[in-house]
Amino acid sequence: MHLAYPAVLSALLFCTGLYGVLARRNAILVLMSVELMLNAVNLNLVAFDVWLSRTAEETLHSGQALTLFTIAIAAAEIGIGLAIVLAVHRNRGTADIDKLRDTAERHDPDGTDHDALTAEQSGEAQKAEATA
């Protein structure tokens, strides 16, 4: 099989996942898109591993091993990610990424910027406490 097939499919899937990460509003949809990207990478790894192990350049099967690891890590990551999304949902009542704008610059006049900063920091500290 021509190597281009899996490689191109992997690239296309990756960019699809990329679009999803950047364009979707709901946090869970973003996580889904991240899974897409991870799977694209996995496909790439497997394809290259099969090619290289056949040409006897590779005896470690590192591609497949890494693919397994990636799958496991992706699973762990989705668990944590969902826990975070749930905590955010509990605190904010929404899972929209658009609404999480705490790092935004406040539109205060000069001189109260530091007040905004301290308010942000204390606010973040409270939220960090709440989610811990």
Binding site: M1, H2, L3, A4, A7, V8, A11, L12, V46, A47, D49, V50, W51, S53, R54, T55, H61, Q64
Partner: peptide, 21 residues
Amino acid sequence: VWVVVDAFRTTWIDLDGPAAG
């Protein structure tokens, strides 16, 4: 896609023989 296709134009995977995975 462009880079990948350009790089692996003459590469084939040999799928004959025992399963690689």
